[in-house]
Amino acid sequence: MTAERTGLRIQEALDRLDALADRGAREAGEQLARDLMEFYHEGLARIVEALPPPALTALLDDPAVAGLLVLHDLHPEDTAARIGRALAALPEPVGLAGFDPDTGTARLLRTGGGCGCSEQDIEALLACHAPEVTATVVEREPRLLQIATRPGTPAEAAR
């Protein structure tokens, strides 16, 4: 389960508490979620500190691990590196052309022939690795048109 999906399930549970009981039940549920988050943060921080760098680096490709580390502000990479890591997991070449932290928009550049990856596939990977990305603009790399004479034409015979 992804961090995004888990967050949605927690919000749904809090909404049910709100609907079934008084305001105090929702506040108690929110406090429970905060306490659990703090507990998990402390445990994960100790694990991250204890892991040798190669072991931690190997774990960063796992979307669930990456999502937890980002959620708890323990991921060792900056936003651009995390976006690059997510894009590297795609079956076709997609590069980062730019990221605007003010709007959360990542400009992406498809550089391959295309494998049929949808923008939803790309956004799902980015949600785990870089939840700061709230919008994507996907562009295609312009292809060069080469104009040449055909073999056997007078222009080629003159060479």
Rank of each mutant, 00 (worst) to 15 (best):
F39M: 10
R159E: 05
E123N: 03
A33Q: 13
S118G: 09
V65K: 05
G104Y: 01
V65G: 04
G24N: 15
R110V: 05
E4N: 12
A157W: 07
G104R: 01
D121A: 13
L20Y: 12
T2D: 11
P63A: 05
L71E: 11
T79Q: 03
L51P: 09
D62F: 06
Q146N: 12
A45S: 13
T57Q: 15
G29C: 04
R82M: 12
H75R: 05
A157M: 05
G114V: 14
F99H: 06
G116A: 08
L145M: 00
A86H: 05
E27M: 14
E156F: 08
V70M: 04
A81L: 02
F39W: 13
E49R: 09
S118L: 12
Q146A: 08
E92Y: 14
T149I: 00
L96M: 05
D61I: 01
R9M: 13
P154W: 11
A148G: 12
A81Y: 00
A86K: 08
P151K: 14
D35R: 13
A19F: 05
G84A: 15
Q11K: 08
R150H: 11
A124S: 14
L14K: 13
C128A: 15
Q146D: 09
G95M: 06
H41C: 00
A50N: 03
H129E: 05
D121R: 08
T153G: 06
V137M: 09
T79P: 00
A3Q: 14
C128R: 08
D35E: 06
V48Q: 03
R107T: 04
H75N: 03
H75L: 10
L68W: 15
V70D: 08
P53Y: 06
R159T: 14
L108C: 07
A33K: 05
L144V: 14
R85M: 02
G112W: 00
A88F: 07
G112S: 07
R16Q: 08
A124I: 09
G112R: 03
D100P: 06
L71T: 12
A80H: 10
R140W: 08
T111G: 04
A155I: 07
H41A: 01
D73G: 12
E119W: 11
E38S: 07
R159M: 00
C128N: 08
E119D: 14
D35A: 11
G113T: 15
T57V: 08
R34T: 12
L60W: 14
R34P: 00
A135I: 09
T153S: 14
C128Y: 01
A28W: 04
R9F: 05
M37F: 13
Y40E: 09
C117I: 01
M1H: 11
A127Q: 04
L68T: 04
A25W: 11
R34C: 08
Q120I: 11
D102W: 01
T134W: 01
P151Q: 15
L60G: 07
R140K: 12
E119V: 15
L145K: 00
I147P: 03
D18S: 11
P131R: 02
A130E: 03
T105S: 00
S118R: 12
L44P: 02
R5P: 03
